[in-house]
Amino acid sequence: MDTILQVSNLGKTYLGAGRTLTVLSGISFSVEAGTTLAVVGPSGSGKTTLLGLCAGLDRSSSGSVELNHILLDALSEDERARVRNLYVGFIFQNFQLLNTLTALENVMVPLELRGEKNIRARALDLLGQVGLSARVHHYPAQLSGGEQQRVSLARAFSTSPKILFADEPTGNLDAETSEMVTGLLFDLNRRAGTTLVIVTHNRELAERTDRIIGLKGGVIISDTPGGAAS
């Protein structure tokens, strides 16, 4: 199976107020294309930092990240943006929708940035798949949390990414909505054959993936198969 993500000896330190703060150190793992992975750990363990580095949202202090065989550390910010646009999808805990765009426009944005044509039908189809056909012209402020996260899901899958990064995708949702969004996430992922990397506190959610990496104090403390692997 092809390796979509290769993380080698990754480290991240921040300089602030005359002190050096190490958030991640000596992180190494690889992810096979089409599999699902959960990164779990307590608050402050470096989960979101790891996700950001893997997705090319930030630069590492040491080590390397290879995404779809492209070494991210060697790229400029614009080149990394292009990599994200071509291969990566995102889902965030606080949805991160563009407040000034409607649901439909939010879904269309990544495709528009690629310069693709005739994307409206595709965006409408995706919104239909997440059950929001009736809310396509609403602004985020007019949608519930669950609805916003469903728009975010549709947006993430709009470009048919090779890998999807989800940062606490159900962290802001109630149990019932969480269940629905999780169901949609895995369903869409399965149909698209996308690699899924989830950062979460939610043990139940993590158990639905193929593999679970445990993080504490910026280092990997466990790497075990998830419930989906059995």
């Binding site: 910010e77 614009d78 943006a81 995102f90 944005v109 990544p110 940035l113 947006r155």
Partner: peptide, 11 residues
């Protein structure tokens, strides 16, 4: 967000 979704500096 646009940067995250892949917008370039020029865009």
């Amino acid at each position: 967000l646009l940067r995250t979704l892949g917008a370039s500096r020029r865009q």
